[in-house]
């Protein structure tokens, strides 16, 4: 089994770095991007299996970034991360092709579960 590669896109440095650290500890190859623009730059050089994308970010928000990702690499599964007490943006992301959404703050297990499901789906599609 290949190593699961995950990109965390969130402008909250503390949150992003902590999550990356925790995923790495669980043998997941995780990397962080501080903005949507940065994420797209990284995606040009590297491949990922799952991207966790925060909805509300300055400059380019999660929905906009999702559109670009789906144009650039449609096979990557995207999980929307929303701190907004509303499911609306999560649902909007799913309409645009996101795999699922997770509400902030969420326990790591929930995030890991969703990442795992997304990964399985991707592998099912490819293999």
């Amino acid at each position: 089994m290949d190593t699961l590669r995950v990109l965390i896109v969130d402008d909250e440095d503390d949150f992003r770095e902590t999550i990356v650290k925790r995923l790495n500890a669980r043998k997941i190859q995780a990397e962080g991007a501080a903005s949507g623009v940065r994420a797209l730059e990284i995606l040009k050089d590297k491949d990922f299996d799952v991207i966790v994308l925060d909805v509300k970010m300055p400059d380019m928000d999660g929905i906009e970034t999702l559109r670009h990702i789906k144009k650039l690499k449609p096979e990557i599964e995207v999980i929307m991360l929303t701190g907004h007490a509303s499911v609306e943006f999560g649902l909007k992301g799913m309409q645009l092709g996101a795999f699922d959404y997770v509400m902030k703050p969420a326990p790591l297990n929930e995030l890991l579960d969703t990442i795992g499901q997304a990964y399985n789906k991707k592998r099912g599609l490819i293999h």
Binding site: D14, F15, I19, K21, R22, H84, A85, S86, M103, P105
Partner: peptide, 23 residues
């Protein structure tokens, strides 16, 4: 909803960080 979002962000950090310490 806007207020909730603003509070959820630091809460997410707290939860994630306490998780890291546990790790």
């Amino acid at each position: 909803a806007g207020v909730a979002h603003e509070i959820n962000n630091p809460l997410a950090i707290i939860m994630a960080t306490s998780g890291v310490i546990r790790d």
